[in-house]
């Protein structure tokens, strides 16, 4: 099971790969759409990559609730449990 820090670091790598944002800019309070250049299509890619990396399932209906990096980290922590 990944720790909170490991999930943030993993999401930072994923966002860097998909949107080209420097990993240090991927912080808990950052909005995927407004701050990290991840549009609704790219968000699907982020979710699929996160599911694979952290061995969790994130149903499509839940994706809309993941506004910030912190939202995604909390979701993944819970889903791992």
């Amino acid at each position: 099971m990944a720790t909170k820090e490991e999930i943030v670091a993993g999401l930072a790598d994923i966002v860097n790969e998909i949107a080209g944002i420097p990993t240090e800019d991927v912080q808990l309070d950052k909005s995927f759409t407004d701050d990290l250049d991840v549009d609704s299509l790219s968000m699907v890619e982020v979710v699929v990559a996160a599911e694979e990396q952290f061995s969790v399932k994130i149903p499509d209906d839940d994706v809309k609730n993941l506004k910030t990096v912190g939202d995604a980290v909390d979701y993944i922590l819970k889903a791992q449990a």
């Binding site: 299509l41 790219s42 699907v44 890619e45 699929v48 599911e51």
Partner: peptide, 10 residues
């Protein structure tokens, strides 16, 4: 299915 890019259509 899950791996098909969401950017495929555009």
């Amino acid at each position: 299915v899950r791996k098909v890019s969401p950017h495929t259509v555009p």
